[in-house]
Each structure stands twice: as C-alpha cells, then as structure tokens.
Nucleic acid binder design. Structure first.
Lengths: 233, 233
DNA sequence: ACCTGAACACCGTTCAAGT
DNA sequence: ACCTGAACACCGTTCAAGT
C-alpha cells in the first residue's frame, strides 16, 4: 500500500466530473433522464454525495449548459480578429456543431433562463456577447447596429438550431413513448388523419426531406447580406 | 332537492376543464409548478381523480399545447382566402399573441416533440400545416417553394417568439429562485463581472431596451420580401 | 475530508374500495 | 359513474453519523 494517495481522501468526485457525467446522461436519455440518483449510480456513488460538489440540481444543469457553451467562447476568442462576416460564420457553425452533437441537451441552452435578461440564447455568457459586440464595433458597426445584429444573430441561431436539434433528437430517441393519443381515432404512428390534409399527404416525401444543412447556410447568408446592407447606409 | 342533477353524477370534472386549469397553473407558476397533485387541489379534488379524464401527465401537457394552438388553426381557416402575404402576416401575429399572453407556457409548444417529425413548432398540427401549404400553392408557389416557405416561416416564428417569451416570462417570475451561482465571485444580481466585458457594460442600456415588437415586424417584412423574390424567379 | 443511512416532503400512477 | 385511500416506486434535499 502506498502512503498518501490511497489512504487520505483521493476524492473520487469533482464538480467537473459530475457535470461531464450529467451531460453524457442527458445526451443518452434526455433531460428527463437526469436525476440526482441516476447520476449518482452512474458514478458509483450515492446521490447525496453529489451535494458536496454541486449546489443542487439547478446548479448542476447550469453547469451542463456552461460546459456545452464554454468551447464556444473559446472559438469566439480565437476568431475575434477575423473579418466580421467570417467571424459570424465561424461562430454560427460552432453553435451548430454543438446542437448537432448534443441534440437532446441543446434545448437546455434555449430554455433555461439566462443570468441577465439581455443575454439571448444560445449566446448565454457575458464574455461571448462582449466579444461579438467588440468584433462588430471594430468593423464600423454603430452601437445600435451592433446590438441589432446581435439580436438578429441570436434569433436566427435559436430558431434554426432548435428545430434541427428536435429532428435529430427524435432520431436518437428523445421522444420517449410514442405518447398514445387519447382519441381512438388516432391509432397508428401518426400517418393517420392525413385524410383531411391532402396537401400534406401529397407533399409528405418533400416535407420529410432533411435540408437542414442547406437551410442553415442560406439563412446565414441572407442574414449576413442584410447586416452588410444595413451597415453601408 | 331537485331530482336528476344533484343526485346522479353531475361530473365535476371534464377533460376540458382540467386542461384549462392546467394552462392557468402553468401561466402562473411555469411548467415546473404543474403537478397532478397541485392541479387536483386547484380543482378541489384529489390527484387520482384526474386520471379518469386525462391519460396521464404527458397527455395533459399535450392537451395544454393543443388548447394553446387551437385558436391558431381557427385563425388560419378564417384567413385562408386572403393573399398569401396577408395570410402569413395574420398568422404570424396570431402566434405572437399566444406567445405574449402565455409566456411561461409558450416554450412547451417549442420543446415538446411533435407527432410527426416534419411538423415544425410552433405550427404543430397537420391541419395547420395543410392550410398554410394550400394558401401558398393557391398563389403560385411550387411544391418546393411552399415547403421552403413553411420551413422559413417556422424557424422565424420560433426564434423570434421564444426569445420574446423568455424576456416576458422572466418578468412574470418564471425564473424561479435567482439560482445563486456557485462561485463566490458572483454575488449580486448579475450586474457584477461586467468588469471584463467593457462593451456590454457600455451598451447595457441599449441591450436592455425592449424592441421585440419592431424586431418582429421588420423580420417578418424581410421574410415576406424574400419569399416574394423567390416566388417571382 | 469525504461519503452514506435514514428521513422528510414531495412526485406520477395504479387499483381496490367507497358512495 | 365518479371520486378517494392506501400503496408503490420514484424524486430532491438535509443532516447526523460513519470511516
């Protein structure tokens, strides 16, 4: 037996490890699957032990969201010297990468109340917003233009990526039980009741096609074009 | 004592009444405040009684979302003969009215998994989508153009209104306890730590201004213009 | 210093029992 | 026919107790 390491403490738990495990659990079984008890047993520990490292479930979820968005702030810092269009493109793609690799967790970013009311998801940290504003201002945006661009950029990302994450999350299996609607008129998988929806029925294949990548790119183009137009007048 | 009415049954509970009460409860205290037991006591009844009229909590939430969006389908039916631009404008405003009058409940529309993967929130019913497609097709949109328009319209509404609902929901008090961040470096209300975010600090007043109405209107204009351009080429 | 057992006040849900 | 009591398997959280 060695002396220090395996006799005293050797804390098996850390805030970081707990948050990582929580994110993994949410990725696997959705936010509903994350309970303190389930997380504990995942880590080979009783649920109560977690409270030594995390202030409660609320704090844990905050930690998961932070973990998810922390790489984002790093990207923003790294790209802060690019032209504003390149910068926004790269940030947009970084956010999309997060949404795609964590489709079940991404809604947490959108849904949880940010620390300040003017922090708009998915950009949830003051630093992130500060970097974004700084880049825009450095390239000739006025204060008002920069703030408007920040707002437009946020809602673009949120709308686009929440829908894309929902589609991918459903594949992963975040839907839970297929929810058996009360009406007996609904029976099967959702293909029913297309009887009084002729256009939906006719366009079903088209509606089911996944064009999220192209949609994202063109919507981003349009947004950037609009910002540029606004900037030069 | 009269004969029929107060002797037999006179069912005090109905699916509709339960759903209405659930929506009222969510409006007041957020989705987290909705429990079967709380809802029961709201209705002067034990929680178990609810299961006679509702298939469980999942079904109840589905009912709440349906109640929230049912007026919407009515609006769409009523406006289906208008020009497509007028139609989309009126639908957009109807959705916004819902978001504004139920800021705490609106995220449910966005977050809950729709019945079919190509049903994009906030348009969550097959009928609604069918009407929308029909209107567009009737005004010369091709199949592809109509589907693209549906997609653009959905993510516009979702991004815009989820953010607006979040701001208004925070006012109503949906944030819950101010969440006491773990770091002791955070102490007050969120105004702290602006020290390393000079632009945010400088633009704080501007960032806090609420321009959601104008933003919504101009973003809607831009979307409609884009669709029109796309249509005529 | 770190983890745990026992306990408390909640959940959603089922089912036999009451009226 | 409708509501309820009791029960079950879960929650989050606290705190004295163990090592």
């Amino acid at each position: 037996m060695s002396r220090q390491t395996d006799r005293a403490a050797a804390p098996r738990l850390s805030r970081e490890g707990i948050i990582d495990a929580a994110l993994a659990l949410v990725d696997r079984s959705g936010p509903a699957g994350l309970s303190m008890r389930a997380l504990g047993s995942e880590l080979g520990v009783e649920a109560m032990s977690l409270y030594r490292h995390v202030h409660g479930k609320e704090d844990l979820l905050e930690g998961v969201v932070d973990a998810l968005t922390s790489e984002l702030t790093a990207v923003m810092e790294r790209e802060a010297d690019e032209h504003w269009q390149t910068f926004l493109q790269n940030v947009a793609h970084a956010v999309r990468d997060i949404a795609i690799s964590h489709p079940l967790a991404f809604p947490l970013i959108a849904t949880r109340h940010p620390a300040a009311p003017w922090l708009r998801p998915p950009l949830r940290s003051i630093e992130a917003v500060d970097i974004l504003l700084r880049v825009l201002l450095a390239h000739g945006f006025s204060d008002e233009q920069a703030v408007r661009a920040y707002r437009g950029f946020s809602s673009f990302l949120l709308g686009q990526l929440l829908l894309e994450a929902a589609v991918r999350g459903a594949d992963v299996g975040g839907a839970g039980p297929a929810s058996g609607n009360g009406d007996p008129s609904f029976s099967g998988e959702g293909d029913e009741s297309l009887d009084d929806a002729p256009e939906v029925r006719r366009l079903r294949a088209l509606l089911s096609e996944d064009h999220s990548k192209e949609e994202f790119e063109t919507a981003l183009e349009i947004l950037l074009d609009r910002l540029e137009t606004e900037l030069s007048q």
